[in-house]
Structure formats: C-alpha cells, structure tokens
C-alpha cells in the first residue's frame, strides 16, 4: 500500500430526509484513500457504499464533515466547482454505463477529453489509444452506444473515464449490468490500468470483483465496519481469496 494519501475524510456524514424522517446513510466516517491503490468498498445493500463513493468523488456533498483531496477541502465547493474538480481529478465508471446515446463512441470519449485539454490532436490520438486498449475496434468508434454490446459500452465508459488521466477512477459496480464473460473483461481492464499506476475506488458486492482490489473497506450501517489489505491481484490469489472470505465472514457478509 502506497502511503501517499489521495483522499481523506473527517467525520463524513450524509443524511437524507425521507418523508420528513431523517435517514443517516453515512455516520462520522474517518477514512483515507491511498494513491495507486485499488480500493474496494463492499457492504450489504443499503449500507451506504455508493453514497460514500459519490461523496468521495465530489459527485455528492456530505451533510457534515470534511473531504480532503490532496489536502484540499472540497466539502465547501459549489456544484460548478465540484464539476471542475471532477473533470480534472476524477474518472467515473457507472453500473448503468451512462454513455450519451446521441453521441458516437468517439464523441463520448472526446466530449470528456476535450474538457481539460486544448490540443485536440493529442486528445484524439489519446482517445484512439485508449479505445484500442479497451479493445474497441477502430471501425466501432463511429457507432452509437445503442449499436454495441453492454460489455463494449462499458469498456468505452472506461476509456472515457481514463481520457483525462484522472488521479482516481471511481467505479460503481461496473460489472453489475454485464454478463460473466464481459464482466471479467472489464475487471481485467481495470486491473491492468491499476497495475499501470491508476488509483481506483470501486464499489461492489461481488467477491470476484472485490478480489481485484488490494484494500477492501467494509461499510455497514453507514460506518466503516472494517478493512483488510490483501495485496495486489495476481500475487497468490488463492490466499487473497481466503483472506477476503474470512474477512467478509467476520463482517457478517
């Protein structure tokens, strides 16, 4: 585990009002995300995993507490400043993929890439490289999201997320809507980019997916109930699997 802290939270809380009844989704969470890690957030349904992910990424704002991104407190940022923060530092891979249906594959990637870079030529080259890396054939780039498979779309989503070379890639159950084969392809892809140094924070409730991470945080009732470091994927995976299984059993999974 790299000791460079990328994101730090202090007493992070999130409360929703549901028909006048307050629901405390996140409760006073103190945690850190380290540079270069493949951090997994696990937990039962409704535990607050996605809420935590989106709070960390500046997609959502906490009710109380602070979030520091490389020592900068992003908690007080307004929506537009958060958008600028996201475009510069974050990449997102969603369960529902969320490509813009009216744009071609290439446009989806470029629409993100051109937000931060002015040199269009470089962005286009980078987009082609990334799409090749995620195994999207060149002749596909002009297609629309509805004309490709779910797995392909998710891989385009990953290319879009990586185009701005984000400090951290947030993935919210990226294989949730995919079949087993394509899900594995996506996980392989995420693993390879993490191996190349890309920090990733991923929410999942799937052990197979969680095994791709080196650090697993377990969220329960809005709190970090526990965490475990199982080392990088590929290094004695059986041992890692057992450690993770034991951990999850301890957490009441």
């Amino acid at each position: 585990m790299n000791e460079n802290v990328l994101i730090k939270t202090e007493k992070l809380s999130k409360t929703f009002s549901n028909n006048g009844r307050m629901q405390h989704i996140l409760k006073n969470i103190d945690m850190k995300i380290y540079d270069g890690d493949f951090t997994i957030i696990m937990g039962p349904s409704g535990a607050g995993k996605s809420t935590l992910l989106y709070a960390l990424s500046g997609m959502d704002t906490p009710t109380l507490g602070n979030i520091y991104f490389k020592d900068k407190n992003i908690t007080k940022y307004n929506q537009d400043k958060l958008a600028l923060f996201r475009r510069k530092h974050c990449g997102f891979v969603f369960q529902q993929i969320y490509l813009v249906e009216s744009m071609s594959i290439m446009d989806n990637v470029l629409a993100s890439g051109l937000l931060t870079k002015k040199n269009k030529k470089e962005v286009v080259e980078e987009a082609y490289k990334l799409l090749e890396k995620v195994d999207i054939r060149r002749e596909y780039v002009k297609k629309f999201p509805t004309q490709i498979s779910g797995g392909e779309a998710q891989r385009v989503g990953i290319a879009r997320a990586l185009i701005n070379k984000p400090d951290v890639l947030f993935a919210d159950e990226p294989t949730g809507a995919l079949n087993s084969k394509t899900g594995t392809d996506v996980l392989n892809l995420l693993t390879s980019v993490n191996e190349a140094g890309q920090s990733i924070v991923m929410v999942t409730h799937d052990i197979k997916s969680a095994l791709r991470g080196n650090r697993i945080l377990y969220v329960k009732d809005g709190e970090i109930a526990g965490e475990i470091n199982i080392g990088k994927y590929g290094e004695n995976n059986e041992k890692r699997h057992n450690e993770l299984s034991d951990f999850l059993v301890r957490m009441g999974w």
């Binding site: 958008a83 475009r87 993100s112 997320a161």
Partner: peptide
C-alpha cells in the same frame, strides 16, 4: 439523463 451524464464527467451547469 444526458445532462446528468455530462455533469458527472465534469461539465459545469454553465456549460
């Protein structure tokens, strides 16, 4: 939905 996606990937409201 599209505007939500654009905002998620970093477009500001002004954009």
């Amino acid at each position: 939905k599209e505007y939500g996606i654009l905002k998620a990937i970093g477009y500001t409201s002004k954009d």
